[in-house]
Design a protein around this nucleic acid. Structure first.
Lengths: 181, 181
DNA sequence: TCCCTTGGTTCAGTGACCGAACCAACGGTG
DNA sequence: CACCGTTGGTTCGGTCACTGAACCAAGGGA
């Protein structure tokens, strides 16, 4: 019996002296980055994450808990009776935007045939360049000034209310109004 | 009995219409992004990946196979007798650099206490800015012009030869000369 | 002949993920 | 007041990916 703690399988990269490994220990598990993506899109409520992601409930609960603990999300009571909480993305979560945008760009250029969505500068409607800048304005665009635009490759009649809400242009970070199922 | 193919557990996000999900199906599995990171650092040989990552051999074989199939790495014979292959990062793999750099930055700013490594512009030695640009030169720096610099937080006497080689400044992409174990 | 290097494959065990069922607090309705 | 619907979970049995250790094989060199 050694005193070394049993390393949880599949969670950390103990031997790696590397900031990327540290980051992946937090956001590298299955579903985690998609939860953060949805949070940046404005999804805040348990049920909206659930139906939009199609994720097992136990896994969603675990991810929301971890992300709250590391300060990427903040659990906040939005109504008292009955008590209801929502998960709002924090500054630390917003700081993941460059990584997510880079991944989206890579996926679109290398794996995706049809254009699904685009990220545009709210002020002028120009699509963001490869480094998150607005080519027309010449400035780096903060997430709050980005609009998520639907593209031609999307299913025009999706089953879940979150996907339906995202068929219209949507300002990032603003809470998403998901209709009934 | 439905005709729908059994979805492999833990690999794809079938319901997601999203470039990020497509990207994560390829690079979202455990270890994968660290393999790509090492490839960008100049690691090319099976044994070097193995000792540097501390990854199970079966998983390394699987990841190298998948990454080769999707065109992120290229398997190339570097000597005939005895026959030996190496894995070299392709243009498609290099295109993952912005995502990895963004993740590294996030990990360092949010999770890491000590500075482990920094990415600097080879021409002038300036540390890269948050969007991969050189603040001094005002240009976006391609990976080939980035130097990986060791920082004060690193173990000064690591066990594996790859970590030892990375204690000296190292130009990205150039093949890494790992000494004997 | 024997051993070493390199680059793998095989296999049993473990734990993360899966989906379905269940639970609980509260409000509204008949 | 009984009952139902909404929201936000927890529990549980089964499956599959990851783990680590052992094994394998094609050469080269002593």
């Amino acid at each position: 019996m050694v005193t070394v703690d049993r390393m949880a399988l599949g969670k950390d990269y103990a031997t790696q002296e590397c900031s990327i490994a540290r980051a992946l220990e937090v956001v590298g598990e299955r579903w985690t980055l998609l939860v953060v993506r949805d949070a940046l899109y404005g999804v805040r409520r348990y049920n909206d994450f659930l139906v939009h992601l199609g994720i097992p409930r136990a896994v969603l609960s675990a991810r929301l808990k971890t992300l709250t603990e590391v300060g990427v999300l903040e659990k906040r009571r939005y109504q008292q009776a009955p008590p209801r909480d929502e998960y709002v993305v924090t500054e630390r979560g917003i700081a993941l935007w460059p990584a997510l945008r880079a991944l989206a760009l890579w996926g679109r250029e290398n794996l995706q045939e049809t254009q699904l969505r685009s990220f545009r500068h709210a002020d002028c409607g120009t699509e963001l360049g490869p480094y998150g800048e607005c080519p027309a304005c010449g400035t780096v665009v903060p997430v709050a000034d980005v609009v998520l635009m639907p593209g031609p490759g999307l299913d025009p009649d999706p089953a879940d209310p979150v996907s339906r809400a995202l068929l219209k242009p949507k300002r990032m970070l603003e809470p998403l109004e998901a209709g009934p199922v």
